Simulated scan of single mutants.
Amino acid sequence: MLWSTLYHKIGKQPSKVTQHTHVYAILENPKTHRTEKVFLQLKHDASGRPYLVQDFSRSRD
């Protein structure tokens, strides 16, 4: 999925859903062939646009 597609899908979600649903990305390392679940936190900038940052409190090493 492209970032632009994800951005449009997040923008169409009601704010209550985005506040109570955990978001994560499943990433695959092509060199080691291992998958990793990275939890993301939804934030909004000053103009109200949503963006994602890694949630280190939920991520596991």
Rank of each mutant, 00 (worst) to 15 (best):
K9T: 09
Q54L: 11
V53C: 01
G48S: 10
H20C: 12
S47G: 04
L2D: 08
H22C: 05
Q19A: 15
E28Q: 07
K9E: 02
L42N: 00
F56R: 12
I26E: 05
D61E: 08
S15A: 13
R49D: 15
E28M: 09
P14Q: 14
Q41F: 09
I26N: 08
P50F: 13
Y51L: 02
P50Q: 11
N29F: 07
G48C: 07
D55R: 01
D55L: 04
Q41T: 11
S57C: 11
T21P: 01
V53F: 00
S15K: 06
H22P: 01
K31T: 10
S4P: 03
Y7V: 13
A46W: 07
S47K: 09
A25K: 07
R60N: 10
Y51N: 04
R60P: 05
G11L: 10
K12S: 12
T32E: 12
L6T: 02
K37M: 02
I10M: 13
P14W: 12
Q19W: 02
D61M: 13
R58F: 09
M1S: 12
S47F: 06
V38Y: 01
L6P: 01
V38R: 00
D61L: 11
S59A: 06
K43W: 05
I26F: 00
S15D: 08
R49V: 13
L27I: 14
R60L: 04
E36C: 03
H33G: 14
P50W: 10
Q41I: 13
T18L: 02
L40Y: 01
L2P: 05
W3F: 14
V23Q: 01
K9A: 06
N29P: 06
K43F: 09
S4Y: 06
E36G: 00
V53E: 08
N29M: 04
S47I: 14
T35S: 06
R34Q: 14
Y24K: 03
E28Y: 00
M1E: 08
L40N: 01
